[in-house]
Computed example of a mutant assay.
Amino acid sequence: MVEKESLAQLLDDGRRKIQVTDEELAEAKRRRRLLAASVRRAFPGSTTYFNGSVAHGDANTPLTDVDLGVVLTATSAVPYGPNKKSALALMEIARDAIHEDLDDKFPKLTIEVEGRRRAVLVRFGDPVSPGQDDFTADVMTAIPHPSGRGLYIPNTKFAAQWDRADPIAHTRMVLQAIEDTKVIFARTVRLLKHWNGTHSKPMCS
């Protein structure tokens, strides 16, 4: 008699096939560290944070991007915010610093600021997953919210040029959900992402 696999076993097998590999993850995190060091240098006293699938622990293969942000000090942020200066100058400073630090390491590196809504788009010209065209990073320049809770993040498509958000708290909540469910949350998200990508993205994250 052929023993049938349980639904749990089938899901676990499927998850292992689509989850990001150790090699992909290690290289993505290395590049993320390089970017974080660069923007911290560009904005003295700033802090960086990580978000997105790599930070949340639910990345799939092939791995194509990573996300991070830099938060200016309250003093440095004074000229920026709603009804003040946009983030464009900050994005240009970040772009220039990344070029200075990483051009030698990644000869095909390109960085886009013009037309970007929220973040500087870094194209490495060098994928971390076999068979992919590239690997990219979104680098967001943010400022503290005056209330002390959350951030103002860029929104160049909006008249005020800034939106209130809290990506740091969002990542903290996701990680707490992963811990509370003993990793089931991350595994479920990974499977749903794969299903979504296979079926014309019928769901919005």
Rank of each mutant, 00 (worst) to 15 (best):
M140S: 15
T73D: 08
R123D: 07
R31Q: 10
L88P: 02
P202L: 12
D22P: 01
Y152E: 09
D126K: 08
R123M: 06
T61H: 03
V71C: 12
L25Y: 10
D104H: 08
E27V: 03
E27W: 01
D58H: 11
S46H: 13
A55H: 09
K193T: 10
V128S: 01
D126H: 03
S38V: 00
K84L: 13
E23F: 00
P154E: 06
N155L: 00
M91I: 01
V2P: 05
G131P: 08
W195F: 15
R116F: 02
R95F: 07
A74E: 15
D101Y: 09
I18K: 12
V66Q: 03
T171W: 00
G131I: 09
Y80F: 15
L68A: 04
M1Y: 01
L34N: 08
T136N: 10
S86W: 07
P107W: 03
K193L: 06
S86K: 06
S205T: 04
E5C: 01
G69V: 07
D101K: 13
V20I: 11
P167F: 05
E24Q: 05
P62Y: 00
S53E: 00
P130M: 01
G81W: 07
P82S: 04
I168W: 03
A186N: 10
F124A: 04
E24W: 02
P167T: 04
I98K: 10
L72D: 14
G57R: 03
A26E: 14
E23Q: 09
D13P: 01
L63I: 00
V183S: 13
R32F: 01
D163K: 03
R41C: 11
D126N: 08
H145E: 09
L90V: 10
V174M: 02
T141C: 15
S6C: 07
G125C: 07
F43H: 14
V113G: 10
S200M: 08
H56A: 05
A169K: 11
I18H: 10
L63T: 04
Y49S: 12
A8D: 13
I178F: 02
E114W: 11
S6T: 15
M1G: 05
N196D: 14
H199L: 13
D67G: 06
L63S: 03
S205F: 11
M140F: 08
F158E: 10
R31P: 11
P62W: 01
M91P: 09
A87H: 13
E114I: 07
D126F: 00
M173D: 06
D138Q: 04
V2N: 05
D104G: 02
G148F: 03
K29L: 12
F135N: 07
T110S: 13
R187T: 08
E114M: 05
V39W: 15
D133Y: 08
V174C: 05
P167V: 06
K108Y: 07
V128M: 01
S86P: 15
D138F: 02
R149W: 03
M173Y: 10
P144L: 04
V71L: 15
P144M: 06
F43L: 14
R172A: 13
D65A: 00
L35H: 10
L109I: 14
I93C: 11
T64C: 00
I184M: 12
T21P: 04
F106P: 09
W195Q: 10
D166S: 06
D22H: 06
T47S: 14
K84T: 01
Q9A: 15
R32G: 07
